[in-house]
Design a protein around this nucleic acid. Structure first.
Lengths: 169, 169
DNA sequence: CCGGATGTAAAGTGATCGTTCTACTTGCGC
DNA sequence: GCGCAAGTAGAACGATCACTTTACATCCGG
């Protein structure tokens, strides 16, 4: 398994505060020396895991959505729910990382870049370019509400996205 | 200042991972011995801060909303935005606490209790009892989107809440 | 005015953490 | 088959942390 993939898994499982470098080393499947060769500090391990996560999220949730806007909206929310179920039962990993180290500007910039890319791609695919803030809000809300309400959160997100689309000029 | 108030401030400022007990002691304004007398472990300090936070959030965001449902909806979102601006520029403190220690069941139960109380009270005040999941989703979305988009997030939340209300049977 | 409860300051303890260092092994071009 | 790049295991180091302990101050009812 790729080093970054193991790191991502370790951070998901243990959280950013309690994942020790030795835990990370084991998850990455390499020796400590090799780990530090490619990621010279623990902070770099966090960044590598998040970069990997970003690419995976984009590929699994936002790639190849149906061309029809209504179908794209539903598929987007379904896929986001599936992602939560299989990958992020504890909430958004980027927000977790920032929460664990609020003073880290690099981390915050990475969060903003990730969310901006998500919002832009989602708005484009669903034909809601003019309502990108509201669409981002729905997706963020789904991500946070899913751990509390599960599938009900997906239905609510689809419902809200549909109302938003009907309201378009 | 009350001990719990100082602890809450310290966790907001430093995050749950990087707030050392000595930092907490200074923020609480007491000696280490007294701090440990009332909160026998660091985990108890986290719980005390969150309990305090919960009461404050309820009082400042959900208490005494206008009787008219439409006005209540707008006031709710406005107040939630104001709360973010003055108190939580880095996102929900409960989610941050859980993210910093995902294996802690007590913490997760506290998060669920807090969100459940927020959702119930908000739905009641806005006349959206049947749509409480969607309303919670909007509030969670606002909380997560505010750090990224500021006032635009508040407008989007008001818009979505209005659409939800219009759609009521 | 005394004695006990209640507070403070600060040094000490043992564990753990991130990071570095030492020593050994393996694959591979020449 | 030699030499070197690149890997492994794991001990060692210095810092920091949560928590304990020791020693001293202050309040206050009797």
């Amino acid at each position: 398994m790729k080093m970054a993939a193991g790191l991502e898994q370790a951070f998901v499982r243990h959280g950013f505060a309690d994942a020790s470098v030795d835990t990370l080393r084991e998850a990455a499947g390499v020796s400590l020396r090799t780990l530090y060769k490619y990621m010279p500090s623990r902070a770099d391990m966090v960044l590598a895991a998040l970069e990997y996560r970003h690419r995976r999220y984009m590929a699994e949730v936002l790639n190849d959505l149906p061309a029809d806007p209504a179908q794209a909206r539903d598929a987007l929310m379904t896929r986001a729910g599936d992602w939560m179920q299989s990958e992020a039962a504890h909430g958004c990993l980027f927000h977790s990382a920032v929460a664990a180290d609020p003073a880290n500007a690099t981390l915050r910039a990475l969060l903003e870049r990730h969310k901006h890319e998500v919002a832009t791609r989602a708005a484009l695919a669903t034909g809601l370019e003019g309502q990108d803030v509201a669409l981002l809000l729905i997706m963020e809300g789904l991500t946070q509400t899913w751990p509390l309400r599960g599938a009900e959160a997906v239905s609510a997100a689809k419902h809200l996205a549909a109302l938003l689309a009907e309201d378009q000029p």
